[in-house]
Design a protein around this nucleic acid. Structure first.
Lengths: 248, 248
DNA sequence: ACTTTTAGACTGACCAGTCAGAACAAAGGA
DNA sequence: TCCTTTGTTCTGACTGGTCAGTCTAAAAGT
């Protein structure tokens, strides 16, 4: 599928079809009529139905398939099959393949930002320094990536692509993750733990990149190593480093 | 296209078609007959013909399109159009879309490894320390990425995908790039500039990741900044850091 | 009673790859 | 200088498989 340039498929956008029950679509560009997906927000929850479980299954199936093959190369039939549901179910739960993907990204990466934030808060509340907080975030990042390598994979593959329909989604999520790191860095500078010359945004993305790439490399090429081990190495790289300027 | 699982298209693999002129193919799994691509090696050169120029144009067109849209979402027709040639020309010059992509990756990323190596050598020969060499490599990396952001994009999107037909190609190239960094790190440790506790492979990939991600972020989100500026920031991050262990 | 899932046939656009011939270049030949 | 020849490179209409998305009637869940 060309993804970027929307097609207009099938029976001409359900032209003039009977409105069917509940046509309250008011999100995403333009839905159609029919039994369609009622709301996009509650990704996995909602007033007690099976939908939550089904959506979860679809996310899980989609994330691994897409990480392996790429978005366009992954077919809806495959996703349905791996999730163990009928193709129609996919379309009952998501307006389109694109929407499924977009919600998947949002759902997943939200978790990362949250997890980083919590790790930082915990470290600071436990009386650690800001650098300790950074270290805790590295650990949290590694744990998260180890737990969802496919998702990380997707994230890395998509983030810097411009012109994709789900770019806005990704950008906003990226913003959240980076913001967490940046705020810790800012605090650290304010408190005097780090040099004032520090370029906050750039350092934040460099750190994120360091963890991301190191983690993916670890999982791909040295999977036998333990998280602790990897964390220790990165930590050493950080500890000696993001500290106050040295003379010279 | 499903890319990973090869299709079998068109008229049954040119069944029994007239061999046509020059059928000396002896590379790539199994070519067919016909006027086909004569050799894959000379990406852009060769005994004086137009092919070189055409291939270059196709590489250029393909790299940007694929960086923007992804491999499967990019059609051969688009590539041909952007390159200003007919679709048939693509297939005259490359056995398939896959092969085009593979050669493109090889061609491009080879340049990166070479450029890193040269930068390192230059720094060392100029009498600098190993850390200076690392610094020079960061700079070379930034320059390279700034010059070919699309290529970098592709690289990042593909590297950790398993199960792709061009994985071997990428792996070998990645190996070359990482090897350059690792050798400098190893030297530095040997000479005593860096701690012996340093985890060479992991640090190498972390550094590469740092530069990669920082550069892509820079180009995407703060394009107005100068290379010098970005380099300085990363350099600071490095200088204070990958140095001998500190007490404590 | 209402919501969700099923199986799968169907549609229409789409796209990788093909092929027969046209355009082009180099090297004589008159 | 102007053909003719021969091999190379390019062209674009065409073929046949593929896939997103639709639809239906009935079954399953709550």
């Amino acid at each position: 599928m060309r993804t970027e340039r929307p097609r207009r498929h099938g029976g001409g956008a359900t032209s003039g079809a009977a409105p069917g029950p509940g046509a309250r679509a008011a999100e995403h560009g333009a839905h159609k009529a029919g039994p369609e997906p009622r709301d996009a927000a509650p990704a996995v929850s909602g007033p007690g139905l099976r939908r939550g479980a089904t959506r979860r299954k679809l996310f899980d199936a989609a994330v691994t398939l897409i990480a392996e093959q790429g978005f366009s190369a992954t077919t809806v039939d495959e996703i349905a099959e791996r999730a163990g549901v009928a193709k129609g179910t996919v379309y009952y739960n998501f307006a389109s393949k694109n929407v499924l993907y977009e919600e998947l990204l949002r759902d997943g990466v939200d978790l990362l930002a949250t997890s980083l934030q919590e790790a930082a808060d915990r470290a600071v509340h436990a009386g650690g320094t800001r650098v300790d907080a950074l270290d805790a975030m590295i650990r949290a990042g590694l744990d998260f990536i180890a737990g969802s390598p496919s998702l990380t994979q997707l994230y890395v593959a998509e983030l810097w692509r411009t012109n994709r329909v789900w770019q806005p989604t990704l950008q906003s999520v990226r913003g959240r993750a980076v913001a967490v790191v940046e705020s810790v860095l800012r605090d650290a500078v304010a408190v005097g733990e780090l040099s004032e010359e520090l370029d906050i945004p750039l350092t934040a993305s460099a750190l994120l990149g360091m963890v991301l790439v190191a983690a993916l490399d670890w999982l791909s090429f040295q999977p036998h190593r333990s998280v602790e081990d990897v964390h220790a190495s990165l930590s050493r790289l950080l500890q000696g480093r993001v500290s106050p300027v040295r003379p010279g």
